[in-house]
């Protein structure tokens, strides 16, 4: 059974790109483009791994991540943060909020794939 991945991102083209790459690697990719309702979606269908964008409409990715870590049922889910802001400050913020990995846009497709694979070891 393929691993489920939730992509929380608001840029349609990026959603399409990541979905295409990961699907071809056997991932079951779902996407959600609002920060506000992201937690409901996560609780409703808890994925095996989350790719989280920082700049989301409604709520920032950091807030969503903090909620994930605070929710016992979701706390263990590995999270890869993607951000268009590549400053050190942003990386620190992401780490403090509990991100497992942090990547800056534009990203390399291979790196994303490897990162996701690393986060969810095959069982």
């Amino acid at each position: 059974m393929s691993k489920r991945l939730l992509l929380i991102e608001d840029e349609p083209n990026i959603i399409e790109a990541i979905s295409f790459i990961l699907s071809r690697d056997g991932w079951h990719v779902a996407s959600h483009s609002s920060g506000t309702t992201a937690m409901e979606r996560l609780r409703a269908e808890p994925p095996d791994v989350v790719i989280l964008d920082v700049m989301l409409p409604g709520r920032s990715g950091y807030e969503v991540l903090r909620d994930i870590r605070d929710d016992p049922s979701l706390a263990k889910i590995p999270v890869l943060m993607l951000t268009a802001r590549g400053q050190t400050k942003d990386r620190e913020l992401a780490e403090r909020a509990g991100a497992n990995l942090f990547m800056t846009k534009p990203f390399s497709n291979t790196e994303v794939l490897e990162a996701v694979r690393a986060l969810v070891p095959a069982t």
């Binding site: 083209n13 790109a17 268009a84 800056t104 534009p106």
Partner: peptide, 13 residues
């Protein structure tokens, strides 16, 4: 940075 990186991400991807 954000505004530039976002389209660039799609282009690169």
């Amino acid at each position: 940075s954000h505004e530039l990186r976002t389209p660039m991400s799609s282009i690169r991807a």
